[in-house]
Design a protein around this nucleic acid. Structure first.
Lengths: 286, 286
DNA sequence: TCCATCCTCTGACTTTAGTCAGAGAAAAGT
DNA sequence: ACTTTTCTCTGACTAAAGTCAGAGGATGGA
């Protein structure tokens, strides 16, 4: 298995990686080219670019100056915070971007051109599969303090999500409170952006834990992240000596209910009075 | 379709490309790392390395000197040709190579580790598919002079192949001669190494052409190269005003016969006295 | 208000990457 | 025997990539 992955890595970096750079830099130094590509995805604060591309601030400053001198980007001071500078494309920059798009299409074209129709279809399908699974494997799940900004962001997205799904909306003040200091929270991130979470509230006296706040961002649905979060919560729970996992859920969350059943949870009598819950599940760990 | 390929390129270069380099260079400059990797596939003449990695001779010289100073490779003069120098790994170099292998495995591991079993299987299968098709698309087919060394190499491989397959072997002097100056030869190359060929001998008076010397190297079987060569020969023939394509073949070449039938050839009466032939096929082009 | 922090920029580097011209030795062609 | 070609190396470059220290303005918090 590992050997096959390695072989793939070799072939693909050779074919895609090498060409891509040479082709898409258009005589520009690679650093500048990458930066241009990044800026053209929309106006960007320099500090964001710096962290995304992991560049030294001095270096970035010079790269931007280069693009500015070519007339491709304009830089202006943020009106809200005069320390922050924002770069965006000039009309000439947008024209260049269009050209880059064209070249990128051309490159993709050369990859499928030698193949016949059925091979092309197979290639594109397999590429989609690889890409999806690679993205899934790029998601990083780790324990995070509930007060961390990323955790807060997850919570507000979670509540917003519930509000659109529940019949009659959702009011966080009505739901049973979960004290932040008594839970273990896992946050899933893709490119350092939070895309999902799940929490465990352990009740040591009963060797029991409640699964709470299971949320997966719509942008990463279908990657098996919900399943992964649940599995990791379970592993955590075992490590803490938990023998029973419990959770409650709303009847509108059909995928979640499917996930719980598939993961071995069985429906039980209501074990609390959570106002938004319609179903209660439990799973015995062995 | 193109959009999907582009999306794949982006994700994959990000995930595989970037990491690969950082991970496998071990503090060494990338040029040196690549070179080391190449040398460790076996003792290599510097001139081969130069053409394979497309490096300037002065540059290569310095890169090798660097690896030599680190004690990883030894360089010696070729006994047969004192101009040529050959590099190979020292024991320390082999140890380093082993370490690189380990890291490479580790990297592959991190790619599949976050996935569950079924996802892993899907990923590996899709990777194999992508890789195979990308290799297929890297094969370059073009008209080549039959006297070109690559063409000669194809011919000798072709004859050697026939000798192992035909009942009672194959003797090139017995077969019907095909004058080199009257044919159009297509040679398929992968990484500039010849891996297949196919020729067309046009008989203008009869608006007819014979397909000859169809050969695909065992190293690239299953990539649809035979089909591609046949299709390109057909396109060529059309361009030359040919209305009928003919070919003869030996009954031991079962895949070839299958290919001809699938490509629309139908079996006909013997139209020549080729001693090694058992089947004669023809196809009308419209 | 003052101080620590944040954000960007400039100057002064170092290291890689890569190019070009030519020297010197060996081999191949004539 | 000669010339040409092949192969490697050295010297002398340039450009890109990246690092480090610190200056200077803006902001946020105590």
């Amino acid at each position: 298995m590992v050997a096959k992955v390695r072989s793939f890595n070799r072939t693909v970096t050779q074919r895609v990686g090498a060409l891509d750079d040479a082709y898409l830099s258009r005589g520009r130094p690679l650093g500048q080219a990458r930066l241009l590509w990044e800026i053209s995805d929309g106006p960007s604060e320099l500090r964001r670019l710096r962290s995304r591309l992991d560049l030294d601030s001095g270096y970035l400053s010079r790269l931007v100056a280069g693009l500015q001198k070519e007339g491709l980007v304009a830089v202006e001071t943020d009106p809200d915070d005069a320390r922050v500078r924002t770069a965006r494309l000039t009309p000439a920059g947008r024209a260049e971007r269009a050209e880059l798009d064209r070249l990128s299409d051309e490159l993709a074209e050369t990859m499928i051109q030698p193949l016949n129709v059925s091979q092309r279809e197979r290639l594109v399908a397999a590429m989609a599969e690889v890409e999806q699974l690679l993205v899934a494997s790029m998601v990083d799940v780790r324990v995070t303090d509930p007060r961390h900004p990323d955790a807060q962001l997850c919570m507000s997205s979670y509540y917003a999500d519930l509000a659109t799904r529940f019949d009659g909306g959702f009011d966080p003040t009505v739901t049973r409170p979960a004290e932040d200091d008594a839970i273990t929270l896992l946050v899933a991130r893709l490119h350092e952006e939070p895309v999902g979470c799940g929490a465990l509230k352990v009740i040591p006296s009963e060797h029991c834990a409640d699964v709470k706040r299971m949320w997966v961002s719509p942008t990463v649905r279908g990657l098996g992240l919900g399943r992964r979060l649940l599995t990791e919560l379970e592993t955590h729970a075992r490590g803490l000596g938990v023998r029973t996992l419990r959770l409650e859920t709303n009847h509108t969350l059909v995928e979640a209910i499917g996930l719980y059943r598939a993961a071995g949870f069985v429906e039980v009598e209501a074990f609390n009075d959570e106002p938004y819950a319609h179903h209660w599940f439990a799973k015995t760990l062995d």
